[in-house]
Simulated assay, not measured.
Amino acid sequence: MKGPDFLGIGAQKSGTTWIYENLSLHPKVSFPAGKEVHFWDAGRDRGVDWWMDQFGPRQPGIRKGEITPAYSFIATDVIRELHGLCPDLRLFYVLRNPVERAWSAARMAVLRAEMTLEEASEQWFLDHFRSAGSRRRGAYAEAIGRWRSAFPAEQLLIVFFDDLRERPREFLSRLCDHIGVDGRAYDATSDEALQRAVFRGPEAPLPPRLRRDLINLYRAPVEELGHVLGVDLSHWLAEPVT
């Protein structure tokens, strides 16, 4: 049987490249087509046989997959089609404070627009935050609802970017357990290596006015996510102490 064993579905700017780089070092994990295939969000005209062929036949003891953050917001009918092909797929979704995620993505977008952070106006950032593309990438509860409507909840691992950043070894071990490989493969990897940032964008503090706008924008989605997961996420909406 062909096809992947696992998929990472997001979120953008939430450590997925770090996950890819570290999982790629595991002797029992393979990314035959690279990190992001972008079939289910942008390449379905190639046909599902093309996508399944990217991973080749499944191999005992080896876990093959891809990590495409744009998969988090694909439509429910597309997710159901995917479930029909790979009903036992292991999924993971990394959630980052949407305020910080949006700011990180906006800074990266500035570079892609061939500007410097100083050249981008406050209004440019506000427009980017409020764009449909940025907002749907932070609509975590909606994404979880769509994926859980097709896949059993136990197949979708929800993890947090804060845990990746603060406890990378524990984070990686939990991820390995979920996709079905032994996390002890990283026992010889130094803490320094695991804490090394990957694909970090330009650093800059989030201006207070922009932070307030983002907090207001994501207040309802964060409260909804907390209800869905049964966790207190109020710290995501807190103003920094000055």
Rank of each mutant, 00 (worst) to 15 (best):
M1C: 15
K2I: 15
G3I: 05
G3T: 05
P4D: 08
P4L: 01
Q12T: 13
G15T: 05
I19T: 08
Y20V: 07
Y20P: 01
E21C: 12
L23E: 04
L23T: 07
S24M: 15
K28T: 07
V29A: 02
V29E: 03
S30V: 09
S30P: 11
F31L: 10
P32T: 05
P32Q: 05
G34A: 07
K35R: 15
E36F: 06
E36D: 11
E36W: 05
H38C: 11
H38F: 09
W40C: 07
D41F: 08
G43K: 15
R44Q: 13
D45N: 13
R46P: 03
W51K: 06
M52T: 08
M52Y: 14
D53N: 12
F55E: 05
G56F: 01
G65N: 08
I67H: 02
T68D: 09
P69M: 05
A70M: 08
Y71L: 00
Y71V: 00
I74G: 00
V78F: 07
R80G: 05
R80I: 07
R80W: 15
L82I: 14
H83Q: 14
H83G: 05
D88C: 04
R90Y: 03
L91P: 02
Y93P: 00
L95T: 01
L95R: 00
N97P: 01
E100M: 09
S104V: 04
A105E: 03
A106K: 06
A106R: 04
M115S: 14
T116E: 06
E119N: 08
E119K: 13
W124E: 08
L126V: 15
D127I: 03
F129P: 07
F129V: 13
G133P: 11
S134Q: 13
R135M: 14
R135H: 14
A141I: 01
F151R: 00
A153G: 05
E154D: 14
E154L: 02
Q155H: 09
L156S: 00
L157K: 02
I158A: 00
V159N: 08
L164C: 10
R167W: 10
P168A: 11
R169L: 09
E170T: 07
F171K: 01
L172N: 02
R174Q: 06
V181W: 03
D182L: 12
G183M: 02
Y186R: 10
D187M: 11
T189R: 13
S190E: 14
S190F: 10
E192K: 11
L194A: 07
Q195F: 15
Q195H: 15
F199T: 14
G201K: 02
P202T: 08
P205C: 15
P205T: 15
L206S: 02
P208Y: 12
P208R: 04
L210H: 13
R211A: 06
R212M: 12
L217G: 12
L217V: 14
A220L: 13
E224Q: 12
E224Y: 06
H227T: 11
G230L: 01
W236Q: 06
P240C: 12
